[in-house]
């Protein structure tokens, strides 16, 4: 069995917007048949949780020195650029 990809979903408080984004990622991954685990965290916790994650999707500003791909999650709240953001995420998950 393939190890599920781990997506870190970051927002200001780790409870609100990141949940909406995490759900959207889960749905999209399921459609593509990709195993994915989402972990929600606060911006301040990202550095300590980045180990073991494949990708970060964020709705809050993050430090620049992160060594895994970071994708903006705002499209999942506003709809603007949603398809492009989903494609970006799926492409990363397929790597």
């Amino acid at each position: 069995m393939v190890k599920p990809k781990v997506v870190l979903v970051a927002c200001g408080t780790a409870v609100a917007t990141s949940t909406v984004v995490a759900q959207a990622i889960q749905e999209a991954a399921k459609k593509e048949g990709i195993q994915v685990t989402t972990r929600q965290c606060k911006a301040a916790e990202v550095m300590s949780m980045v180990d073991g994650a494949d990708l970060i999707v964020t709705t809050t500003p993050l430090p620049k020195n992160i060594n895994i791909p970071v994708i903006q999650g705002l499209p999942f709240l506003t709809g603007v650029g949603k398809e492009a953001a989903l494609k970006q995420i799926i492409d990363e998950l397929k790597k």
């Binding site: 408080t13 609100a16 949940t19 909406v20 709240l77 506003t78 709809g79 949603k82």
Partner: peptide
Amino acid sequence: MLALDRPKAQIEVLQQVANLLQS
């Protein structure tokens, strides 16, 4: 302005706000 006390249970409210902002 969202005043939620149990965000996990009320997440659908934020989802609804996001949905309407997308229309």
